[in-house]
Design a protein around this nucleic acid. Structure first.
Lengths: 157, 157
DNA sequence: CCCGTCCGTTGACAGAGTCCAAAATTGGAC
DNA sequence: GTCCAATTTTGGACTCTGTCAACGGACGGG
């Protein structure tokens, strides 16, 4: 997506049958500039950009943009929903169980491979969401140094 | 997993260093008998089985069982966490965007394939969660009959 | 039998998101 | 430029999920 200029955004909104409002423009721009951002943080940043926005409007804008396919919403366990503007490229996410860091990874298998499960049960599938769970390099290192000489330990949840 | 008899469960708990309590037994049995169940519903069902359980105890039991790998927690967007007792078989989920129905699907690509993304960024990956989003056959049918003769419509969220 | 640990209960609390009704804005028609 | 209907935004109350902390009871090794 990665659009920058307002005129582009105006056209984009119109194409999708959406009215153009300062709130929506700011929300879309903010997510575009800050991948994997929470709704709360969007509100904060938008406020620095246009002065004020209600929490509800942030949710409204995010919701309608996700509906129209301009944004994507991912929701890791134990974290509020995250939004990003990379859509339609079937990329996946790598999330650290400890610090919650999120990174993009391109699809391992090729082009939208996961859209065809072994047995679709008659579902009309439109998206495959893949999340790799693990520990990021930093948290791995921290844990190893902490466990030095300690006994076996169950990984925390 | 699919254990049914209490003696089996007792041993299972002990193997994992857990004390055996009526609450935990009931929670595990309930999830085993009701895949893709929410914590709230677990509480309801457990109450019909053993009379009473606190909300906190349900969360405690579910948490410890997930920690020990006896249960798995999945958390779809817009839904509370769901629990199931199929673990260690790397199966995935098919979720209907409209009615929220959840179904299991076996992994398309083979054995734990998604544990190796194209670029792991140094993460220690221990799980890959795959969710196929779409519309179940029922909701598809309902929608088609509703759209008969109507204009093009954006899919709702 | 004692003591430390584990477990269940209760109640307060927090975070994320939704509902609702009123006020304001948008955009098309004139 | 003005008007009007439809769409949006706003603010506040509210719900739903889940967590924290404190207390008391049960378990189990010694």
């Amino acid at each position: 997506m990665y659009v920058a200029m307002s005129t582009d955004l105006n056209a984009l909104f119109r194409q999708h049958g959406l009215q153009v409002t300062p709130q929506r423009l700011a929300v879309l721009r903010t997510v575009a500039g800050n991948p994997h951002i929470t709704a709360d943080r969007v509100a904060e940043l938008v406020r620095t950009e246009i002065g004020a926005i209600s929490r509800q409007s942030v949710y409204n804008a995010l919701g309608v943009l996700v509906d129209r396919g301009l944004l994507r919403r991912i929701q890791p366990v134990g974290s509020p929903a995250l939004f990003e503007d990379r859509v339609n490229d079937n990329h996946h996410h790598l999330i650290c169980r400890e610090c919650g860091r999120v990174e993009d990874v391109d699809c391992a298998v090729g082009r939208r491979p996961c859209l065809t499960p072994s047995d679709g049960r008659g579902y009309e599938i439109d998206e495959a969401e893949v999340v790799y769970w693990g520990r990021c390099p930093d948290c791995s290192a921290r844990r190893e140094s902490r466990d030095e000489g300690a006994g076996i330990r169950q990984p925390g949840q």
